[in-house]
Design a binder for these strands. Structure first.
Length: 568
DNA sequence: ACAATATGATCCC
DNA sequence: TGGGATCCCTATTG
């Protein structure tokens, strides 16, 4: 070691942890090994100042007294501690962060998954491995007459028949990128089964025919900021309603792109952030000819679809001044709708008697509720809250004081990402299969991946994890096709279409634990040289490998052929 | 390789 | 009650 000019300058002493610098090349290490690192002894050594690079230096005086030589000379050594500091809690003795593709939690913080102190994600009983944690709520049997009537109605249409649903086995993936900001919502065309609509943070509306890969249109002049929701016009599915954080509801012809604003909550323009109204939740009620929208001040407004004009008064449905993030009309009971918001509640309402405080039920959550949906028969409720729990209420006519089940699942990131929302599989007659993206990553053969989870909410079992080694970004937006075995995902600026492989294409799975392994079909995007990345056009990126194989998904052909029911 | 940043709920005083 | 600091696995750009 070269000596420092300690005659003229105070000696610089740098204390640092025993070296753990060499990145462990094998990322397949198990957790026990990693946790053992905490106990490594701390050595101190003198070193070059250059080694400060990348460390968090702490000027320390702890060695002052222990160096009598320098004291005699009257030169106080400057001791810089390079002891590794946990970037989460700033304490020494442990570190948080990625070791290869495995993330190590800070042991001083509550579990990042279930939020309970005393353990980390690694040892969390709810750790996503083969099944999610399920906290069953007591099942109360209510024999109210209304339940009986309702169930008789259901029996009539045959929805109570439990049928095996389809879970992806192995899938292909096609990918497209035409949005210039992160994707915020997706919507399948109800009748033309190859059309997918997408909205982004900039307010752009994409129309993509994913069978004819290159056929897409992006309308950029409809909204000026986040497009939060798209709903098809039940009278004419060539037109859509869209709600945006610019405070407007638009009505757009998908063919021509001709659009008109039906409602503008900021008629006087920008008067500052305290008065700017943004529309988040939206849904249509075909029976009552209503479009329901709700804003960031807790207020719902309605539009009459026949006249395209306001209907009724605005009503406060969530805590004053808080954002309402979701609305959903009951598919079978036209007068019922569900709302959820930042006041930690989901609420059931009757449109006929809508006034502040008149909700039929208030479902309390630990934190903000990202979404709340009725099941397809309208009897169950599914909510996603950023307290990292998916909740299911089995019957809206039962006791709604507590959910029937709480499923611990990682989806609590609050910035930079579109909020995660668990959504029902609209094809599942048993009304239990749900899809939701996962925030927290897992180490899959050395890659930190964020799967898209299929969860059987009846058992809490994780029945499928959809992922691809080439897709390393988080997929908060997911939509299952209303008729086909197709999943659409929005991940950052990209959109993925996942489709099951044919029987002949299945490859042996290395790891039986993982139910879904995804094809190597999705290729990593290469950034186009010269492309700024924010351009509205000329930045399209397609991966057509899926289609080149001649496996073009067809509405008829795809039906139930290759997907298997597993774990059932 | 690293820094900057957009961005939103929450916590704390 | 409100403004400002804080925040654990981002994605992207320079």
């Amino acid at each position: 070691m070269p000596s420092l000019p300690n005659q003229r300058f105070p000696r610089i002493v740098i204390a640092r942890d025993s070296d753990t610098e060499e990145e462990s090349s094998s990322s397949e290490e198990e957790e026990e090994e990693v946790e053992g690192d905490d106990n490594e002894e701390e050595e101190e050594e003198e070193t070059h100042v250059e080694k400060l690079k990348g460390k968090t230096p702490i000027v320390s005086t702890e060695n002052e007294d222990s160096d009598p030589k320098s004291k005699r000379k009257g030169k106080t050594p400057i001791t810089i501690s390079l002891k590794k500091v946990c970037k989460v809690c700033k304490k020494t003795g442990h570190e948080a962060g990625f070791k290869g593709a495995t993330y190590i939690d800070c042991p001083m913080k509550p579990c990042f998954l279930c939020k309970v102190p005393g353990h980390t994600t690694m040892t969390c009983p709810h750790r996503i491995a083969t099944e999610h944690g399920v906290v069953p709520a007591s099942r109360r049997n209510t024999n109210k007459p209304v339940t009986y009537v309702f169930e008789r109605q259901l029996r009539h249409i045959g929805l109570l028949v439990k049928a095996s649903f389809t879970i992806p086995d192995q899938v292909h993936c096609a990918v497209v990128r035409y949005h210039s900001r992160r994707v915020t919502c997706l919507e399948f065309h109800p009748t033309n089964c190859n059309i997918l609509l997408s909205g982004d943070k900039k307010g752009q509306l994409g129309v993509w025919d994913y069978n004819k890969v290159y056929e897409k249109v992006v309308y950029g002049n409809i909204h000026s900021c986040i497009l939060n929701n798209i709903r098809f016009n039940p009278m004419n599915d060539g037109t859509v309603y869209a709600a945006s954080s610019d405070g407007t509801v638009s009505f757009t012809d998908l063919e021509t792109g001709v659009s008109e604003p039906l409602m503008n909550l900021n008629p006087n323009g920008w008067q500052g952030p305290n008065s700017w109204r943004m529309l988040y939740g939206m849904d249509v009620n075909p029976e009552r000819n209503l479009v329901l929208v709700a804003d960031n001040f807790g207020v719902i407004s309605m539009l009459d679809m026949r006249s395209n004009s306001r209907s009724g008064d605005a009503v406060l449905i969530h805590k004053k001044g808080t954002k309402v993030v979701g609305l959903h009309c009951n598919p079978l009971q036209p007068d019922l709708f569900l709302s959820c918001g930042n006041d930690h509640f989901a609420r059931i309402w009757d449109v006929r008697r809508l006034e502040a405080g008149s909700s039929l039920a208030s479902l309390q959550h630990g934190r903000v509720v990202n979404s709340a949906y009725f099941s397809r028969s309208g009897s169950k409720i599914l909510t996603t809250s950023i307290d990292n729990r998916i909740r299911v209420w089995d019957s809206i006519f039962g006791d709604l004081d507590s959910p029937s089940r709480e499923i611990v699942h990682s989806h609590d990131f609050n910035r930079h990402l579109t909020p995660f929302r668990a959504e029902w599989d609209p094809k599942d007659p048993s009304e239990s299969l749900v899809v939701i993206g996962r925030y927290i990553s897992e180490n899959y053969n050395g890659a930190a991946l964020h799967p898209i989870d299929f969860i059987d909410t009846g058992s809490g079992q994780l029945v499928a994890e959809v992922m691809d080694p080439n897709i390393t970004t988080i997929s908060p937006v997911n939509k299952l096709h209303p008729k086909e075995d197709i999943l659409a995902s929005g991940s950052s600026r990209s959109i993925f279409i996942w489709k099951p492989k044919e029987e002949s294409e299945l490859v042996p799975e290395k790891d039986e634990r993982k139910i879904v392994l995804c094809g190597s079909d999705a290729k990593k995007f290469k950034r186009k040289s010269g492309g700024k990345g924010e351009d509205d056009s000329g930045d399209d990126d397609y991966d057509t490998s899926y289609y080149k194989k001649g496996k073009s998904p067809s509405c008829k052909g795809a039906k139930g052929r290759t997907m298997k029911s597993r774990n059932r």
